[in-house]
Structure formats: structure tokens, C-alpha cells
Amino acid sequence: MDSFALWDEYRQVVRSYNGGWRIGKGVYCHGYSIMDDLVGNISYMQMVILNVTGHLPERRLADWFEARQICMSWPDPRIWCNQIGALAGTLRTSAVAATTAGVLASDSRAYGGPRTIIEGMHFIQQALHDYNNGLTADDIIQEFCAQHGGKPTMMGYARPIAKGDERIEAMERVRLSLGFDVGPHLTLANKIEKVMIEHYDEGMNINGYVSAFVSDQEFSAEDANRISTVLVSSGVTACYVDTMKRPAETFNALRCEDVIYVGPPPRRVKSRSINYKK
């Protein structure tokens, strides 16, 4: 067999696990007719989850994800991804360019967004495994610290700028109103937070809460990441709209003196004796 036989199988053909458009017949998504079965019958977040996982979730679970989406996107341009939306507005980009730039920025290791949920879910799932094998919440933190320079920097605990997280209380209300039980991951996450508060003066953040809840709903970390791709988009767009209403280059305006130069002193390019011609 040719070494390139695999690619010949994919040549001039498109294969899809999802479904798609059968022109003149219908549009299909994982076996559902979008126009007949889904439009008007399911929420947008149900559709998002269906597209990622291939399974249509119950409405209340999609509603929980939608509430979480509201929690995670604020119209405050000091937030890093939102600042990019505001800067795009001040340079008069299109709304789509501004929003996608901000969404791209949220693919970050540093703050709560689509990427951090992967590490957050891996942590709490491993932690529950260890807990079920006899470790306490305190043991789990100590073991983490031993492997990470003595610091309890588990994804899902502590956060930049502030201590504590107002979004957890809000999402707890949503959980209760939608009738979700507290599962084993969230129970353990709360136990870990109690130890963190007592010994390290740090609490759980929204990513820790979401990671635990979503683990209890039996999502994989990768699917949770994919459902969360445009988590911050609404706040980014809001910040873009704000700066579009103001004169150009007025957001975060900087005089030359507002940037401190710490590089080498002035110097001259030496006479070049290089002959680049071959």
C-alpha cells in the first residue's frame, strides 16, 4: 500500500461526524433535522452543547451553562480580554474583529476562561480519585504543594486582583433554582476551599466551582473547553461598543512619557562593510 493511501481516502471528499446540509432536503445535526426538530424547540446553549458533544442535553443543564456564560463576561475594560475589545474600538475595527480578538485573548493560562477549565477539571477529577482512595482535602493540598514549590496554586483556587469570588454565590443560586444536586466533585471542591481559607487565606474561584460542577455532570475537560470557547465575547463586544462611541485613540491614551524606556542608550549603526550581493 502507498504510504500516502490515507490521504487519498480523504481526497475530493468531505466526511462529517456532525451532519450538514443536504441541499433541497434539510439540514441535519447529529441525526436531528435542525429546521424541524431544533429551531424553536431548544435553547441556543443546548445547540452549542449538541454541536460539541453530539448529544442534546436537558434544557436545565443548558440554562446552567448560559447563566455561567453571563457570570464570566463583564463589560469592564480593565479585564485583559475586554481591554483588547476596547482598544479595537478605539482603532475602529469591525465589531467581529474586536470580539474575536478578545475571545482569542481569553485562551489564556492566567485567568478564568476556556483554557483554564481544562486544568481545573483535571485537578478536581484527580483530587476526587485521591480522596476516594483515602486522602483528605488537606492531604490533597499538601501533596499538590509538595510538587509545586510549596505553593497551593491549584487551578480553581485564588484569583487575580481580588480574593473570593462573587460568581460562586450567584451560580449556587442558579444550581438550586434548576434543581441540581451537589455531586462528589463539588462537595470535595468545597472541602478543599475550607482548608484553603483556614490555612492559606485563599478561596475557590469560579473556575474551581465550574470545574467541579461540570465534572459532576460527567463532561470531559476537552468538551467543557469547547463549550466555553466564546465565554467572554459579550463583555468584549460591550467594551468595543463603548470606545466606538468616543473619539479615536482616547481609550488608554498614552503620552510618550507614559512609557518608561529601560533599554540601551543611544548608539549608531556602525559602517557596514557587508557585501550582500552574491
Binding site: P160, I161, A162, K163, G164, D165, E166, I168, E169, E172, R173, L176, D181, V182, G183, P184, L186, T187, N190, E193, K194, I197, E202, G203, M204, D216
Partner: peptide, 19 residues
């Protein structure tokens, strides 16, 4: 998945700005 707690989880850290 069994019901372990069905009350709002109180006792989370109150929000305060870091220094």
C-alpha cells in the same frame, strides 16, 4: 449522583481586593 447538600453553599470567601 446522590444528594449530598441541597442548601446554598455558604462560607465561601467574601470578596475583597488584594493589595
Amino acid at each position: 449522583m446522590g444528594v449530598i447538600e441541597d442548601e446554598p453553599q455558604s462560607g465561601h470567601f467574601s470578596v475583597k481586593r488584594r493589595d
